[in-house]
Simulated assay, not measured.
Amino acid sequence: MNIYEINTVEKTLDVLYNDAKKDFIRIGRGLIKSAFRPMQPIDFKHAYLPISKEQGETIRQLILDNNCKTIVEFGTSFGISTIYLADAARKNDGNVVTTELLENKAKQASQNIEDAGLTDYVDLRIGDAMETLKDYDKPIDFLFLDGWKDLYLPLFRLLESCFHKNTLIYADNMDMTGTQDYANYILKKKDKYVTQDIHNGKAYISKFL
C-alpha cells in the first residue's frame, strides 16, 4: 500500500460524498413517485443513500482488525460502501462480492470503483441478490447488509450456511421498520450470534459463534 493508492481511494470517496449531498432532491423525487403505491428500488435509482463516513471507517477497521478476506455486500448503490470494503480487502489480500439490483447504479459503481483503483478486488453482480448470490458457497468472513430492507432476512438465511466461527455481519438501517424481521431473527438466536447496536442504533454488528 502506497501513498498514491491511499490518496486515490480518499479522493474518490470525497468526490462521491460531495455529489451525495444532493440526495435530498433525488430522494424527494423518489418519494413523489411512490405517493400512490409502495416504494420500489427504482424510485431511488439516482440516489446514493450512502453510509456515513463514520460507518465507512468502522467497517474498514472491523475488516482490518479481524483480518477478513472474503467479504459479501448486499446493496452496492453507487459504490461508496464497496470502496471502503474493497480498500480493506486489498490490505488483507481479500476480495469483495457485491450485488446491485439496478443496472444504472451498478455501471456507475463499477466506474467509481475503478476510479478508486480497486477493480481487481471487486466482483460486482447485477440483479436480484436472491439470484446473484443463490449459488454462493464460499466461507464468508464479513457480510454487509445495506440493500432493500425487506430482503435482509431472506438473504441472510440464504447465506447463513457460509458463516463460520467469528463471521461478522454489519447490518445498516436497523432503525427502519423494514429490518424488523431480521432484528427479531438474529436477536433471538443468542446461542449462535452475539449482537450489539452501534451508531445510536442505526446499525447492528453481529458475530457468529
Rank of each mutant, 00 (worst) to 15 (best):
V97Q: 07
H46P: 00
L16Q: 09
I63K: 12
N92D: 02
F74R: 03
L133P: 01
Q196V: 15
C68W: 12
G30Y: 05
C162D: 01
L118N: 07
A47R: 07
P139I: 09
E54Y: 14
E54W: 13
D172T: 05
T76S: 12
G56T: 10
K192P: 00
A20F: 08
D23A: 06
L151A: 09
V122L: 06
E57K: 15
T179R: 14
I169Q: 02
K53C: 02
T76W: 11
V122N: 03
D175N: 13
K134I: 08
A203P: 00
P38N: 14
L85P: 00
D23L: 07
I169R: 03
D14E: 09
I71Q: 09
I32L: 14
K21W: 10
G178N: 07
L159W: 04
S34Y: 06
I51F: 07
Y121Q: 07
Q196N: 09
E103K: 15
A183F: 14
A171I: 08
K33M: 11
G178C: 07
N200R: 13
D128Y: 11
D65R: 15
E100N: 04
V97R: 11
D135W: 03
I3M: 06
D181M: 13
D135C: 02
Q180S: 11
D43F: 14
T58I: 15
I71R: 11
E57M: 13
Q61N: 13
L133Q: 07
L133D: 06
T8R: 15
D128H: 12
D137H: 11
F144Y: 15
K45V: 11
K202E: 08
E5Q: 15
K69H: 05
Y4C: 01
L13R: 06
